[in-house]
């Protein structure tokens, strides 16, 4: 299963980005193969519609789960329609590597 994690940078040691639409990078993680890909978020400076643009980008990749900090109302309802699961991490200090480890352990 493919999972997207929002990230503040382009290495696994950085923190999960609390913002969904205006995060710096998306980390595309495949739980089956263990592949990790960093995608720069083109909507980071958008004044409006960054979340919706990000949803489109993610949906195209065939992702089934998204890990981030907070999700807006528009984004939530879009993801619900697309049947993509949302996970909101609690700590400011959680790194991308930690999330990837947790996801790998569950084996889903």
């Amino acid at each position: 299963m493919k999972v997207v994690i929002t990230s503040t940078g382009d290495s696994p040691g950085v923190l999960v980005d609390r913002r969904f639409g205006r995060c710096h990078y998306f980390v595309l993680f495949d739980t089956l193969t263990g592949e990790i890909e960093f995608i720069r978020n083109p909507g980071v400076d958008h004044l409006e519609g960054a979340g919706v643009a990000a949803v489109n980008l993610i949906a195209e990749k065939g992702v089934k789960k998204v890990v981030s900090g907070e999700f807006g109302a528009k984004v939530k309802s879009l993801f619900d329609q697309l049947q993509i699961q949302l996970v909101s991490v609690p700590h400011e200090s959680m790194t991308v590597r930690k999330v990837i480890e947790m996801l790998s352990e569950t084996g889903e």
Binding site: V87, V89, V99
Partner: peptide, 21 residues
Amino acid sequence: CRCRFNHLEKAEGPSRCALCG
């Protein structure tokens, strides 16, 4: 792990955490 997650299957509730399991 104190994360929050939503659940899309309406028929039955989730049995495990979506992040740490």
